[in-house]
């Protein structure tokens, strides 16, 4: 099984991602499960850099590099075009970054989720505009340094999962590259559901997070085990399921490994811990309701 999946190689080597790029790992893991009967949409972001410069490309499935704010309606247009031609056995996958999802693409994603068009939307969240050189987005966590928040981000990260849940779309899930099996199970599950599926995929970025290039999977695991990024899924906007019981390590274990948080004082770290604990309680409560 594993070897045949690897043979698919739908994100070929030699692409232009930085060393240790979590985003490229995430795309590769997603594409492995999606398989060759997929049409992908990417938008201006690191996905464009990974795509390569003409005439070379790393993508092994038909891929359309659309405009920034329209990953979702582009994918929906392809899905409906294929459906009209009786080819709805082909899955349409949209990849967008956190800027393309939380910020500029939020409206169009909402429109597609409202219509429940049949696409899988994967938000590759590296928590800032990394492709344009590390500027703050609404996915950037509290106090994180970016080139446009040199004193640290004064605002909290937007809760995109709750926004998606408010659309009552059939399936949304968080995932991260440090738990590849969890991620790939979620993609498999999403493939079996008709309608708008949403994956919030946390992808560490050594360049923007100011981290060594060999610890991206480790950081991804720490994000989950500190509860900064819990693994869960939401079905029909109601049924919450926590997929992994975290070890609840202190947030320092995650924050202090990253240059973007090196300026944090004790009070700021305590605040992050309070926010994380509060969110975890809210999530546990929602999961206890069971739709």
């Amino acid at each position: 099984m594993a070897s045949s999946v690897q043979e698919l190689n739908l994100l070929r080597p030699g692409h232009a991602a930085c060393a240790g790029c979590g985003l490229a790992i995430g795309m590769k893991l997603v594409l492995e499960v999606m398989g060759p009967r997929t049409v992908a949409v990417i938008v201006p972001s690191c996905e464009g850099a990974i795509g390569g410069v003409y005439p070379n490309t790393s993508y092994g499935v038909p891929t359309f590099h659309s405009a920034f704010e329209i990953a979702a309606p582009t994918a929906a247009g392809i899905a409906n075009g294929l459906k009209i031609q009786g080819r709805d056995d082909i899955q349409v996958l949209a990849f967008a970054g956190d800027g393309g999802t939380f910020d500029i693409g939020l409206q169009s994603l909402s429109g597609v989720a409202k219509n429940n068009d049949d696409i899988l939307y994967v938000c590759l969240d590296n928590e800032a505009y990394m492709n344009t050189g590390i500027q703050v987005s609404s996915a950037t966590p509290s106090y994180a340094w970016t080139n446009t928040t040199p004193e640290g981000n004064p605002r909290r990260k937007k809760n995109i999962m709750e926004i998606m849940a408010a659309h009552y779309n059939p399936y949304s899930a968080t995932a991260t590259i440090g738990y590849p099996r969890d991620l790939q199970q979620k993609i498999t599950k999403a493939k079996g559901i008709r309608g708008t599926k949403f994956i919030h995929l946390l992808v560490p970025c050594p360049t923007g997070w100011r981290t060594p290039s060999d610890i991206s999977p480790e950081l991804s695991i720490l994000a989950v085990e500190t509860n900064v990024f819990p693994l869960y899924e939401v079905e029909e906007g109601r049924k919450y399921t926590i997929n992994h019981e975290p070890r609840r390590l202190p947030v320092q274990a995650y924050l202090l490994k990253q240059g973007r948080f090196k300026h944090l004082g004790e009070e700021q770290i305590r605040q992050v811990q309070r926010d994380v604990d509060e969110e975890w309680e809210k999530l546990k409560h929602r999961a206890s309701l069971q739709g």
Partner: peptide, 25 residues
């Protein structure tokens, strides 16, 4: 006989038309 996409903006309407056109319809 077909699909009416009720998009959330004209910008998305055009995005969807372009994408669907590229599938050949």
């Amino acid at each position: 006989k077909g699909i009416m996409m009720r998009t959330e903006s004209e910008h998305s309407a055009m995005a969807s038309c372009i994408a669907a056109s590229l599938t050949g319809v």
